[in-house]
């Protein structure tokens, strides 16, 4: 038995004239609002713990600022590569820049892993104090987001670019929502970097 073809969903790839958005753009926008509330919840917890504490940082433990700066640089690279991957309606997509984005994201995750390993070996476990606890909470949640971005980015050259040969609009839509996501993660990282590494 052949199942009937699912109905075409309107405005999947072309913007709805009166709203100016495609479904995916609006959906990603809403997701980022929700995500902002997630990071907002974590960051306000950090603020509340910090103003309640007598001394801050509570003891000598501190994340390594140089590693934080390296991660900031990698996110800049991700944003630059994502922007370079933009293509016009007539020009073909450029898979190279998606691979570059993915590579930078992978380097970001590897740095985070190395950072955690080093910290744990020096006795900087999450339970040492609430500052270090928040360091792990915020950076781990952010790193999980980078991992999700890595998967989404890889799906473009692996799955979507072959698809793009027949449907450039859908490919452009994927690229633009992935780019929105990376911009957001980079912006959130600035705050995390400032409050955790430069504290």
């Amino acid at each position: 038995m052949t199942t009937p073809r699912p109905p075409e969903i309107p405005y999947s790839v072309t913007p709805r004239p009166d709203t100016g958005f495609t479904n995916a753009q609006l959906g990603m926008g809403l997701f980022l609002v929700a995500d902002l509330m997630l990071f907002g919840g974590l960051l306000s917890s950090y603020v509340l713990l910090r103003v309640n504490a007598g001394v801050w940082p509570p003891d000598q433990h501190h994340p390594v600022a140089a590693l934080g700066a390296l991660k900031t640089g990698l996110l800049f690279l991700i944003v630059a590569a994502t922007n370079a991957a933009r293509h016009g309606k007539s020009s073909p997509p450029r898979p190279l820049f998606f691979w570059l984005t993915a590579l930078a994201a992978l380097a970001f995750l590897a740095t985070t892993g190395a950072e955690y390993a080093k910290a744990l070996s020096q006795g900087m476990a999450p339970g040492v104090n609430t500052y270090i606890g928040m360091f792990y909470a915020l950076t781990a949640v952010h790193a999980l987001h980078v991992l999700a971005g890595l998967v989404a980015t890889l799906s473009i050259p692996i799955l979507a670019v072959p698809l793009g040969k027949t449907d450039p609009l859908r490919l452009a839509s994927r690229r633009s929502v992935t780019a929105m996501y990376w911009y957001f993660l980079t912006a959130v990282w600035f705050v995390i970097f400032a409050v955790l590494y430069l504290a």
């Binding site: 974590l42 917890s45 713990l49 476990a125 999450p126 339970g127 606890g133």
Partner: peptide, 17 residues
């Protein structure tokens, strides 16, 4: 979700949020 993550850490990795 943020609160749940923090409470999970309190329970599993001995933080004290």
């Amino acid at each position: 979700g943020a609160a749940g993550i923090l409470q999970l850490m309190d329970r599993v990795v001995d933080t004290s949020f």
